[in-house]
Simulated assay, not measured.
Amino acid sequence: MADKRRFDLFADFLVERFSAPRVFDVAGGQGKLNEALTKRGRAVTTFDLRHKHLPVQYAQRIFTLEEPCEAELVVGMHPDGATRIIIQYAAAHRLPFAVVPCCSDNGMPYNPWMRHLAELARESGFTTVEEVKLSMDGRARVIVGEHGPATPATGA
Rank of each mutant, 00 (worst) to 15 (best):
T64R: 10
I85F: 01
T46I: 05
I85H: 00
A82L: 03
D105S: 14
A43Y: 02
A90F: 09
F47W: 05
T45W: 01
G107F: 13
A98V: 12
V74M: 07
E67A: 08
F47K: 01
P79C: 07
A59M: 02
V100E: 01
T46N: 02
Y89P: 06
D48T: 06
Y89I: 04
E66G: 11
W113S: 05
H53F: 00
Q57T: 12
V100P: 02
N106T: 09
I87G: 09
R42P: 06
H93F: 08
N106R: 13
Q57R: 13
I62G: 02
W113Y: 15
L120E: 15
H116Y: 13
A43E: 15
D105W: 10
M108I: 13
W113H: 12
D105K: 05
N106E: 14
T46R: 03
C69N: 14
P101W: 07
Y58H: 10
T83Q: 01
Y58R: 04
A92V: 00
M77Y: 05
K52S: 02
E66Y: 08
P112I: 09
E119N: 11
V75L: 03
R61A: 14
L120R: 06
C103F: 07
P101H: 09
A59Y: 02
R84G: 06
V56M: 04
T83P: 01
P68Y: 12
Y58D: 03
H78I: 05
E72D: 15
D80K: 03
R50V: 00
K52H: 04
L65D: 10
D105E: 15
Y58Q: 04
A90G: 13
I85W: 00
Y110P: 13
A98I: 14
A43P: 00
Y89F: 15
V100S: 03
E70V: 08
L117Q: 05
L73F: 08
M77R: 12
D105L: 06
V99R: 01
P68R: 10
A91V: 12
M114L: 15
T45K: 03
R84Y: 04
H51R: 12
I85G: 00
E119T: 13
L117A: 05
H53P: 00
A91D: 07
R50A: 00
H116D: 11
L120F: 10
E70S: 14
A71Q: 08
F97Y: 11
H53T: 00
A90N: 14
P96A: 09
R84A: 12
Q57Y: 00
V56L: 01
L49T: 10
V56C: 02
P55V: 02
F63G: 04
L54T: 06
C102Q: 11
D105H: 15
S104Y: 05
N106V: 02
F97A: 12
A71K: 07
N111R: 11
P55N: 14
E66T: 14
T45S: 01
V74P: 06
F47V: 01
P79F: 08
C102E: 12
L49H: 01
P68C: 10
P55D: 15
F47G: 03
L54E: 11
D80T: 02
R84F: 03
L65N: 10
A59Q: 13
R115D: 13
D105F: 11
R42N: 09
P96G: 09
A59L: 04
D80R: 02
T64A: 10
I62C: 09
G107C: 08
D48F: 04
